[in-house]
Amino acid sequence: MVSDPSRTASRDRANSDTWVVIPLYNEATVIAGVIDGLRAVFSNIVCIDDGSKDGSGRIAEQAGAHLVTHPINLGQGAALQTGFAYALERGAEYVVTFDADGQHRVEDAQAMLERARDEHLAIVFGSRFLDDRTQAGFMKRIVLKTATAVTNWSTRTKLTDAHNGLRVIRQDALAKVQLRQDRMAHGTEIIVQLGRTRLPYAEHPVEVLYTDYSKAKGQSLLNSINILTDLFIR
């Protein structure tokens, strides 16, 4: 996932008004590479270590990220919300949410941020289904499409990929988000809440890199059942 972003590095050092928020849970083997890749473009990176047991937090800190450590494991949604609070506290204008397992490309994040700036968008969602770069398996496609259909049905949004971890959110939209679901359904909850802000949003085509590593860690079919039940039972 670490391709050559140095080409644009000098120009994008200006991204000092942007914080990259990375929920981090037991990703010790890949997190340093992810942060290295991001640091070429983004100066402010915060990892929310969600009670990792493999020293992920320390590695992230050594790689040059700011570190916030949950004293106990709370789930990815809670980690995102903590990251939002942290970034807002430090005067962030934009927040980029980025997965720790290296499935996103830094170039996509950069392009999305530029698009948010150029088109005055409050939210830019990454979508792997807007073009055919992403190689998703058949079952994975069904799971994600179902999750997306449910999300679109229960929110007022029209999105093609609801559970993509790559998003750019402007500070005014961010201030209105208060994620309550601690588990994975935050993918939907964040869209519900962002949709309610009625701020301008867009989807941006991104490539999701299904490495063997992320495939092994990714959401299983059973987990998508969890996502659905979490949504309906509170």
């Binding site: 450590t69 709370l74 506290e89």
Partner: peptide, 10 residues
């Protein structure tokens, strides 16, 4: 509570 603790520690 955990979030408040984490942010304060940071």
């Amino acid at each position: 509570l955990a979030r408040a603790v984490a942010l304060m520690e940071a």
